[in-house]
Nucleic acid binder design. Structure first.
Lengths: 237, 237
DNA sequence: TTTCCCTTCGCCATAAATGGGGAGGGCCCA
DNA sequence: TGGGCCCTCCCCATTTATGGCGAAGGGAAA
């Protein structure tokens, strides 16, 4: 228990609301003695939530400019599991370099390290530390703190999920085995006729499964039902 | 660096192939002095891979019995982000209890602790420690090792992804913004006509996006395309 | 024991999606 | 500056999906 981060993790675990996470991110920035600490997530329903030490003007500007579509950190981390040093991302497009220039103008450091985190139902979050320094300093910093940052990112996400999860959380009616079979086959490209053949049942029976699955999932059509079944973890494709 | 797990994490990071992960799991079992350590994953394409100290007979039996559909550990962890003590999962169904009885008969301990891990493209993995003990011992054990187990799980997954990723990894042609818009709207239940209206374009134009997205994703139909776009992380619903 | 849910099947009519043509303007990168 | 990709629009014919009606046996839970 001689780690600097154990007490901080405890603070995180004691957080009661999103405001506490905000305070914690500022605290961590001071602990690590770096420019910025940011936690940012996209929930299953597409809502966004972020807390951290970026200038609020930058955050607003970021959203207004729709930088989510440009930001190489988002684009890069979305496809990977490993934490990423910003230097190693793809900055080849003109838009990406312009974005970074704009970011630095708004107070961001030139160095960054982001940890992607994924939750159930397609939740995606990023935990980022940012600083202004030379490469050597940053390499040492990230190597030294890699593991602790993973734990911190994990704890941030755990809390954020906890706060959100307590809100909705319906009864979660599950799908029957046959409904799961049907959804799975449709998700991998089978037409209704093909899926029926694959399951050795009549096409009409298959329709019954699809319709009941659609009803349970509250979906408008088959595509919607499959999408929901996927994002709610009923099927794995 | 006074932790027991830092040298072990180093071992994991030095692993060269899946066999090394197998050895590592045995090593960790002995380090922690518990019955079993298992890492198990399901890749985006539905393939499974596991390594760990379970009796191979049990693994075979598990697959033959299609226990994936019954196992409360899988079912429970798939919906959550937090690590789960097996005691706190849902054992209410008859099938679940029969499954556990069968498991113990094959050498599993009565206590378990599983950490769900998610990667890009819908990858899902579980890292599990298992032991035969009373509740008090297990509670203490999991409380003491929670954080280190998260890091170990993370490291296992990182390596597994690394080994798999080096194999295929196509050029990963991305979708255009409009294609993403189209896929997103379809995924949330819009029909083609509705989606076209929402995007203020003609329905025919929308069709062009759907078809080109389908082509890029190698999908057979719209539902398939949306499913692929979701599991490959192009859209978030 | 009754009630709910799961599984299975059929027919008919309409709405929606797909396949295959063709066409023009714009932007970015080499 | 030319090729490649992106965005936008239109028609026709065919295949496929959906909506609505009804029906029956089996199993598990209450």
């Amino acid at each position: 228990m001689a780690n600097w981060y154990d007490p901080f993790l405890q603070t995180l675990e004691d957080a009661q609301d999103l405001a506490d996470l905000q305070t914690a991110s500022e605290q961590l920035r001071d602990l690590l003695n770096i420019d910025h600490v940011v936690y940012h997530w996209v929930s299953a329903s597409g809502e966004q939530y972020g807390c951290g030490t970026y200038d609020p003007n930058w955050v607003r500007h970021y959203l207004e400019q729709d930088y989510l579509r440009v930001d190489p950190v988002i684009l890069g981390c979305y496809q990977r599991f490993h934490p990423a040093d910003w230097k190693r991302l793809d900055w080849s497009s003109k838009a990406a370099r312009a974005f970074m220039k704009d970011a630095i103008k708004h107070g961001l450091g030139n160095q960054g390290y982001s940890i992607p985190i994924r939750g159930p139902k397609g939740q995606f979050a990023l935990f980022t530390v940012n600083h202004s320094s030379d490469d050597a300093f940053w390499t040492t910093f990230t190597e030294n703190h890699r593991r602790s940052l993973i734990l911190v990112a994990y704890a941030f996400n755990q809390k954020a999920l906890e706060f959100e999860g307590s809100a909705d959380r319906g009864p979660q009616k599950g799908l029957s085995p046959r409904e799961i079979d049907a959804m799975t086959l449709l998700a991998v490209g089978y037409s209704r006729a093909q899926a029926a053949t694959a399951l050795s049942i009549s096409e009409h029976t298959l329709r019954v499964y699809i319709e009941s699955a659609r009803f349970k999932l509250g979906a408008m059509n088959t595509t919607h039902a499959v999408a929901r079944a996927m994002s709610q973890g009923f099927i794995v494709v």
